[in-house]
Simulated assay, not measured.
Amino acid sequence: MNNTNKSPLKKLLAVFAHPDDESFICGGTLAKYASERVDITLVSATRGEMGRRMGNPPYLNRESMAAAREMELRSACDSLGIQRLLFLDIRDKTVEFADESSLTSRIADLIYEVKPDVVLTFHEKLGGHPDHCAIGKATTAAFQRSGIRGALYFITFGNAMERPERYGYSRKDVMKIDVHAHLEAKLAAFRAHRCQTGIDEWVWLPDHEAVANFGRYEYFLRADRGSSEENLDDLFSIPLGSRGFLS
């Protein structure tokens, strides 16, 4: 009889709006935790069928865009180590018009099912796109409703949160994740989203030149702004059960 004790896998649920959100914004972080055997579930509200980029040179149209972007997202998930991908089947650029109560309930059901230790989504005001803000608002409400013992974080863009005071936050609200060891995986995920990155010459430079365009860190805002937790470099560091939300 094998009595070897194995600690249970940690779980992360990422709820975003479009294919490529996962790679372009926090691909390094997802690859890092996947490499540490965190069980990751990615939810995309849409299939990105209204994306403005059609490839370079253009090879897609509105009829073929959704299927192509789904295939690209699945390839990006393989590059990042994401085990499970789900779609909410909302039309691109219409998430803000979806019934809020129904959308919140759907996401809450997923939270109950997955039982994640960490949930990632967009900030409902700092998301930068109506779809981003809408899925962030619904996910935040679903997390609050669920009452799970876990932590909620908002993804942010680039190194904007090096100076969080500009956005009404302080440094203790920011999680700074070192992803330098996972930039190759992030680059592979960028390249998987070919129709969106084909026009970006730097993505297709030799690997060592391309990864030099990435920052060493990715940044996340803690929804629990009242936490006194000192460890600001691990999304799983906040004690389970620590709760508190933006007003």
Rank of each mutant, 00 (worst) to 15 (best):
A14S: 14
T94G: 06
K93L: 12
D233H: 13
A76S: 15
M175D: 01
I40R: 07
C77Y: 11
F157Y: 14
K32W: 00
L85C: 12
F190N: 08
R145M: 13
I199C: 08
F190A: 01
F24W: 13
R53K: 14
I177D: 03
A192D: 09
H180S: 15
E49Y: 09
Y33E: 10
Y217A: 00
D89N: 14
R243N: 09
A160R: 15
T41I: 02
M65K: 01
A34G: 06
T104P: 06
R53D: 12
I25G: 00
G241A: 03
A31L: 02
A142V: 04
N2F: 12
L235G: 03
E201P: 00
T156W: 10
G27C: 01
C133S: 11
V211M: 12
R74A: 06
L80E: 00
R166A: 09
V203G: 04
G215M: 05
D178Q: 01
R149G: 12
L85A: 08
C77R: 08
D207K: 15
L110W: 08
G241E: 05
G150Y: 03
A134L: 12
K6C: 12
H193G: 05
N231H: 13
V179L: 02
G136W: 08
R216N: 11
N56C: 12
T46E: 04
L73W: 05
L205F: 08
E165W: 05
G81S: 11
K6D: 11
Y169Q: 04
W204S: 07
R163D: 15
V38N: 09
F157A: 06
R163N: 14
E165R: 10
R163V: 15
L187Q: 09
R47E: 13
D99M: 06
G51N: 03
L73N: 09
D117M: 09
V211H: 07
C195P: 02
K93N: 14
A138N: 14
A134E: 12
D117N: 14
Y153R: 01
R191H: 10
A34Q: 04
I25M: 10
I25K: 02
D92T: 06
Y153W: 09
S247I: 10
S101H: 11
G136R: 08
T29N: 00
L80T: 01
L60W: 04
R106W: 04
Y217G: 00
R47F: 08
I90P: 07
Y169W: 13
I177L: 02
A14M: 06
E72W: 03
E72A: 02
K176P: 01
N61L: 04
K10V: 01
H180V: 11
E218T: 03
A31R: 02
N2P: 14
K10M: 10
E165Y: 02
C26Q: 09
K186M: 00
A68D: 00
R222P: 03
